[in-house]
């Protein structure tokens, strides 16, 4: 250890040694959020599944009749799909669907 005024500088510099990676970078990579491409692909799969499910439901179930019956019952109970509430209901359904899709897409990926 030098006996001049720079002994502290020497001590501090002496303590500065290269830290080996030792798997650190790999641990960081494993902890990163999923890739954007994977997120996009997952969203697309989710959306496609939802569309197919709707189409299947419409075909397998008596979709047209069901729709007609629903509209009829809504009119009967006084909740007619007027120009005011139809867009609101549609938007609510759309927003809920998108919210659900985004939530699923952003959930942590299990690899």
């Amino acid at each position: 250890m030098p006996k001049n005024d720079d002994w502290l500088d020497a001590m501090l510099r002496d303590d500065d040694q290269y830290i080996q990676d030792g798997g650190f970078a790999d641990r960081v990579l494993q902890a990163l959020p999923p890739k954007r491409r994977q997120r996009t692909r997952r969203s697309a799969i989710l959306l496609a599944s939802a569309v197919i499910a709707c189409l299947l439901g419409f075909v397998v179930l008596p979709g047209g009749q069901f729709l007609l019956a629903t509209v009829t019952s809504l009119i009967k109970f006084g909740i007619a799909p007027t120009s005011t509430n139809l867009p609101v209901v549609s938007l609510a359904v759309l927003a809920t669907t998108i919210w659900g899709a985004v939530a699923v897409a952003q959930s942590p990926e299990v690899e």
């Binding site: 990676d21 650190f24 970078a25 960081v28 990579l29």
Partner: peptide, 16 residues
């Protein structure tokens, strides 16, 4: 490109 390999290089370069 969300290139993880490139990010790993940055990590290895600056981690110490």
């Amino acid at each position: 490109d969300d290139d993880r390999h490139a990010f790993a290089q940055l990590v290895r370069r600056h981690q110490s």
